[in-house]
């Protein structure tokens, strides 16, 4: 069985492998970096490092709507801290089998490993490598 954090983005269920998860925080003060691609909301200072914040909604759905329950998920992957700005955080879910996602948007397909089912709900498992671009 594998564990993943359930998060919601644009009313779609996603999950990220628990191994990379460092912390979930409510909000951070973001400093923008002009001229960067729009899916990078900016950077912030975290545990002595400058961390980029990926706007997951923009990256996957090209949408910039704001959510009241938005959270910042901090990941540590291959030695770098990276943060994801997501609409909502739920709970830890467990899965044992991934299947190939079918009939989904090309952009989403690019950033996921596959889909798993839990309590009759489908979750897209995000691929951190591709998301962070390392």
């Amino acid at each position: 069985m594998c564990s993943a954090l359930h998060l919601i983005c644009n009313e779609t269920f996603f999950a990220i492998p628990i191994d990379s998860l460092v912390e979930v925080i409510d909000q951070v003060d973001i400093d923008p970096i002009p001229t960067m691609s729009l899916d990078i909301k900016g950077v912030f200072y975290y545990r002595g490092k400058i961390v980029p914040l990926i706007d997951l909604r923009y990256k996957l759905f090209q949408s910039k709507e704001l959510s009241q329950s938005a959270r910042v998920v901090i990941l540590q992957h291959k030695g770098f801290f990276t943060a994801l700005y997501v609409d909502q955080i739920r709970m830890i879910v467990e899965y044992d089998r991934l299947r190939r996602a079918e009939n989904i948007d090309e952009t989403i397909e690019k950033y996921i490993d596959g889909v798993f089912q839990e309590n009759n709900l489908d979750y897209f498992l995000l691929n951190i490598d591709r998301l962070v671009g390392i």
Partner: peptide
């Protein structure tokens, strides 16, 4: 001054480095 070493930030075209200010904010 800190070099920009995060892979996601390597394409910054206008900056040579970044710095943490006394307020804890980041300045390009």
């Amino acid at each position: 001054l800190r070099p920009i070493d995060h892979p996601l930030l390597k394409d910054i075209k206008i900056a040579s480095s970044m710095s943490i200010l006394k307020t804890g904010r980041v300045a390009t």
